[in-house]
């Protein structure tokens, strides 16, 4: 089973065969409320870990999305661009944002496991 890891910025990352799929967590989607706009990076763009590379906007606020790992944008989810509400309905699955061909798969292990992310939410 593919492992999902998390960032402090409320993003989830799934790594499969050197390609990371990234989205925002269900918690983040709930906090944001109705999502009305998504801006995703151009495929092929090189991004550094922790660089802002996408924007998710709810009615109330704009939120930067950061690349959780270094790599090249492999694919973006056009479905959420066309219908941003998908993120609110299925943040962890169909609401994925973009895929990254990662430069260094070991960066994945520096990300939070689910238990650590859940603990962070508990502590907040």
């Amino acid at each position: 089973m593919t492992e999902t890891r998390y960032t402090r910025d409320h993003e989830w990352v799934r790594l499969e065969d050197g390609v990371a799929t990234i989205g925002i967590t269900a918690h983040a989607a709930t906090q944001l409320g109705d999502i009305v706009f998504v801006e995703l990076p151009e495929p092929g763009r090189e991004v550094a870990a922790n660089a802002a590379c996408a924007v998710v906007e709810s009615v109330k606020a704009a939120s930067d999305i950061f690349a959780p790992m270094t790599g090249r944008i492999a694919e973006v989810n056009q479905a959420v661009v066309a219908d941003p509400a998908i993120i609110g309905q299925a943040a962890m699955t169909d609401g994925w944002l973009f895929r990254l061909t990662v430069s260094d798969a070991s960066e994945f292990h520096a990300l939070m496991e689910k238990s650590a992310y859940d603990a962070m939410l508990e502590a907040a």
């Binding site: 910025d9 925002i24 906090q31 998710v56 704009a62 930067d64 950061f66 907040a124």
Partner: peptide, 9 residues
């Protein structure tokens, strides 16, 4: 993801 909103009072 970062946002300027504080969710809890």
């Amino acid at each position: 993801m970062t946002t300027t909103l504080t969710a809890e009072p």
